[in-house]
């Protein structure tokens, strides 16, 4: 599985970043990407409305467990991914986020009933939202429902969030909510995806 596209959608549903990683894969036009972003924003909201009550309760209890870091009943550990963001000789360091693998620890996804994962015959799409309403989206080149692959994608999106915190938020020339045009963010994201 390789990553075909990464998108960043701001809290009002606007596409602020889009990048393709597979050189000759079929592409959407920029307008279609904007529509995709807006649609995802809507689907995420709808998904949360139609989630059956029983699943909502489930999600709730798992989030509660994770709210106590290092607690006994926290969410399943996202496994250690070897070179992912490793500060070893060949891995690129993850900006101000240190450690062999920043996300070697368990974490709880708090959007228990939001949209996380969409699979078609051709692709899979992974969504990670933040508490502030930003959505990070990754599209893979092959469909997958494999738990390991999902964990890898989730890990990748969290690291993308870290890179966003470093190279977008700490850049005085970036205006919040506007399209991201930061060379260093591009560079580091490229390295991160290449390491997969």
């Amino acid at each position: 599985m390789a990553i075909q596209t990464i998108l960043v959608i701001n809290k009002s549903g606007g596409l602020v970043y889009q990048r393709d990683f597979v050189p000759n894969a079929p592409r959407l036009s920029s307008n279609e990407y904007l529509i995709l972003a807006g649609t995802l924003q809507g689907i995420v909201a709808i998904a949360s409305q139609i989630t059956p009550k029983s699943l909502q309760l489930d999600g709730k209890s798992s989030a509660r467990g994770g709210s106590e870091p290092m607690g006994n009943n926290s969410a399943p550990l996202v496994p250690y991914m070897g070179t992912l963001g490793a500060t070893t000789a060949n891995g690129a360091p993850l900006g101000s986020f240190l450690g062999p693998d920043y996300f070697n620890d368990a974490f709880a996804s708090w959007n228990g009933r939001g949209l996380k994962h969409v699979t078609t015959d051709q692709n899979s799409l992974f969504v990670y939202h933040t508490l502030t309403g930003i959505k990070f989206v990754a599209v893979s080149t092959q469909p997958t429902t494999n738990a390991m692959a999902v964990a890898v994608a989730e890990n990748l999106l969290r690291k993308t969030y870290c890179l966003y915190a470093d190279y977008v938020m700490k850049n005085p020339f970036y205006e919040p909510e506007m399209p991201i045009k930061c060379e260093l963010f591009d560079q580091h994201l490229g390295t991160l995806v290449k390491q997969l």
């Binding site: 994770g66 709210s67 974490f107 508490l131 930003i134 969290r158 969030y161 870290c162 915190a165 919040p176």
Partner: peptide
Amino acid sequence: GMRLIEDFLARTALPRCE
């Protein structure tokens, strides 16, 4: 603060406080 919160959430991944 509006920018720093993203760093904080990326760094800690803490859920919303109840």
